[in-house]
Design a protein around this nucleic acid. Structure first.
Length: 490
RNA sequence: CGGGGCGUGGCGCAGCCCGGUAGCGCAUCUGGUUUGGGACCAGAGGGUCGCAGGUUCGAAUCCUGCCGCCCCGACCA
């Protein structure tokens, strides 16, 4: 199989933006740091959303919607939560504009100041737990398994298309449970669902793990995450699932009477994935020709390009149309581009740039031979296949592409995952090839901070699926229970 | 907020040093020939040169102030 084509590291940021813009996924908006998601980009989001939504519903979750504006006082209720989000909030203070006295400028009407500031949600825990406190009285009211698809705003200093924008789309789940165990089981279930979404649909291998205290979600007792490795050797946090303990229940006085007739605080989880996943998808699979989409998430899986020939236009088009219908009937997302606005060569390039997994080209030669030319986006391999039985070949090829993308991303990650035992080695590997570094850590925030300061690498997570391995912290020399995953992160 | 860079048709840029009334590529439109990997020929439309002052007979170009954007750092799904 072809190697992943990795752009030179110093051009990586530019390459990324080029892929996004050329594939018509998104543009920056006139507002600094926020993004216009174009139809091509939104279609990918819809695919991700639909698959995740289905998995959530299959596991008993329901969708609901909570308001965009949160009273400022709500945010103040959970101490760690405020601390974490205070520095990145958009705040609404007035309800009206008016023309200035000289009639020249539109200004904020000083008379329209709000009694209480409203914060544009950076996340919805507070408003949701305020609501849950009204919904929950008895153990019979539990569990509550609610998800919402929404937008949130975080006033970030530096932004990048999809990976970090001021406003982003996501889903946020907020569950309420009668016991610690049940809330923890939910937290872990969601982590597994996220890992499944990443690996089976996005073809993006992830490491499941636990965040250290300093990387933990503001207000959580434990944060679980999936971490992926991008082609430039940097890590991307692709999703998080938080065990909130009783922190938010206490902050919002949400109690229930249990089966022993005792009053108890509700146990909670919250979890989310965002449009950042699209950034992850791009940074995992795309190459110098543009976007590469895994078949399961490609809005268009197969594009058919007719090659016109004088006098045979309608014959060729009829054959193309018939094959398109066959594929559609077989449940394949197919697009026939019979537009006369562009020439075939132009279309070939365009669909490559847009990441369509399979391209079929049919011309006079194929009509005569009963064949069609099939080209794979992942390997650029071209083959001539019989029109008879096409659907089965396409289905197999889509599966093969999906598998190949995952396999090569996994191989890539394996190459860029290094076990290191000294700080020298750590620094040297980090600078020469980057990637994931598995190293021992004494478990203290001090050591973690010092390593970050010295190397820019952070602990991405303490991986869940690994054998305990006693060792010695490379910086402090203190004992360590096992290796943790370091990397430079997005 | 600190360090660097840049603002010129829709996009990407040249022109600025050395002042003379705006040009290139792509895109767009029209007509024609084409069509198995981003066609070719001919023609056309489109710009208060970021904003405001100043110097000058004359400013995209020189001077002053302001605004905006991008990259690097602190923040971060």
């Amino acid at each position: 199989m072809a190697d992943v084509i990795t752009p030179r590291a110093e051009d990586y940021a530019q390459w990324y933006v080029d892929v996004v813009r050329r594939a018509k996924l998104a543009d920056y908006s006139p507002v600094r740091g926020s993004m216009i998601i174009r139809p091509n980009g939104f279609a990918v989001w819809e695919r991700l959303r639909d698959e995740l939504d289905r998995m959530l519903k299959d596991t008993g979750h329901e969708n609901a919607y909570f308001p965009l504006f949160i009273p400022q006082s709500f945010l103040a209720r959970e101490a760690k939560h405020v601390e974490g989000f205070a520095k990145e909030c958009a705040v609404v203070t007035h309800s009206r504009l008016k023309m200035s006295d000289d009639g020249q400028n539109l200004i904020v009407d000083p008379d329209a100041v709000l009694e209480e500031n409203l914060v544009v949600r950076p996340t919805s825990e507070t408003i949701i737990w305020d609501t849950y406190s009204k919904w929950i009285q008895s153990w019979r009211d539990l569990p509550i398994l609610i998800n919402q698809w929404a937008n949130v705003v975080r006033w970030e200093m530096r932004t990048r298309l999809f990976l970090r924008t001021m406003e982003f789309l996501w889903q946020e789940g907020h569950t309420a449970h009668a016991t610690r165990e049940e809330a923890m089981t939910e937290t872990r279930l969601i982590l597994d669902i996220y890992a499944h979404l990443a690996e089976e649909y996005m073809a993006m291998p992830v490491v499941k793990g636990i965040k250290t205290e300093s990387e933990r979600f503001a207000g959580a007792e434990e944060t679980f995450c999936i971490e992926a490795l991008m082609q430039d050797g940097k890590a991307l946090q692709a999703g998080t699932s938080h065990f909130l303990g009783q922190n938010f229940a206490r902050a919002f006085n949400c109690q229930f009477q249990n089966q022993n007739n005792e009053l108890e605080y509700v146990w909670a989880s919250s979890w989310g994935v965002s449009t950042r996943l699209i950034g992850g998808l791009i940074l995992t699979h795309s190459d110098d020709q543009g976007l590469v989409l895994p078949p399961k998430l490609a809005p268009t899986q197969v594009v058919i390009v007719p090659i016109p020939k004088k006098g045979l236009e309608s014959t060729i088009l009829e054959a193309a149309d018939r094959l398109a219908r066959t594929l559609k009937d077989a449940g394949i997302r197919v697009k026939l581009d019979a537009s006369e606005a562009q020439r075939p060569g132009w279309k070939f390039s365009e669909y490559e740039v847009q990441g369509v997994p399979i391209r079929l080209a049919i011309g006079a030669r194929d009509v005569e031979n009963g064949t069609i030319e099939m080209a794979r986006r992942d390997t650029f391999e071209k083959t001539s296949v019989p029109q008879a039985g096409l659907a089965a070949v396409i289905r197999d090829t889509l599966d093969a592409i999906q598998k190949n993308l995952f396999d090569r991303a996994l191989a890539y990650r394996a190459n860029l995952t290094t076990r290191v035992d000294s700080l020298d080695e750590f620094t040297q590997v980090l600078e020469s090839k980057g990637g994931f570094l598995l190293a021992h850590w004494d478990g203290t925030a001090e050591t973690e901070a010092r390593i970050k300061e010295q190397t820019k690498a952070t602990i991405r997570c303490i991986p869940l699926d690994q054998e305990p391995e006693p060792g010695i912290d490379m910086l402090s020399g203190k004992p360590s229970k096992g290796r943790v995953l370091f990397a430079k992160a997005y």
